[in-house]
């Protein structure tokens, strides 16, 4: 059976196109870290709109996946990662290691998505 949540793998591999390696391990296997350029991060705050809140509220009565919210968070996460990668590129890094993600609700309607890691140069 196919469910809608198997949506496409859109912008998620943007960092590879940018030529910056992003991993969440402490080292990159097969490469040597030569320089540490500090912590880089990127964040987005996303608000859900009232109409979407209403439709997802109806979906909530039945239970199950809230597809629109999944898509919203996916897009926001891509944006946060893109900002982190841009930050690292501005510092002249070619890789980001030990990436972590954090989600927090700023107000009742808005979620902040934050990605951070260490920008390094590898050989």
């Amino acid at each position: 059976m196919k469910f809608k949540s198997q949506h496409t793998y859109r912008n998620t591999m943007q960092h590879i196109r940018d030529g910056i390696l992003v991993v969440n391990t402490e080292t990159i296997a097969g490469k040597v870290i030569t320089q540490n350029l500090g912590v880089v991060g990127g964040s987005t705050v996303r608000a859900k709109n009232i109409g979407r809140d209403f439709t997802q509220g109806i979906r909530n009565i039945f239970g199950g996946e809230l597809l629109k919210y999944t898509e919203l968070l996916e897009e926001s996460r891509n944006e946060a990662i893109a900002r982190m990668v841009a930050d690292a590129a501005a510092r002249g890094a070619n890789a980001i290691v030990n990436v972590r993600f954090a989600t927090s609700a700023v107000t009742a309607g808005a979620a902040e998505l934050f990605a951070y890691g260490t920008a390094v140069t590898v050989e």
Partner: peptide, 28 residues
């Protein structure tokens, strides 16, 4: 694991992630 168990070495690596928003029904 962090990858030290891989014997043959690693050619390439990159981030992969997925998320899902799930809600229990009002009955639950």
């Amino acid at each position: 694991l962090k990858g030290s168990h891989i014997v043959g070495g690693v050619n390439n690596s990159g981030l992969v992630y997925s998320s899902i928003v799930y809600a229990p029904s009002h009955w639950m």
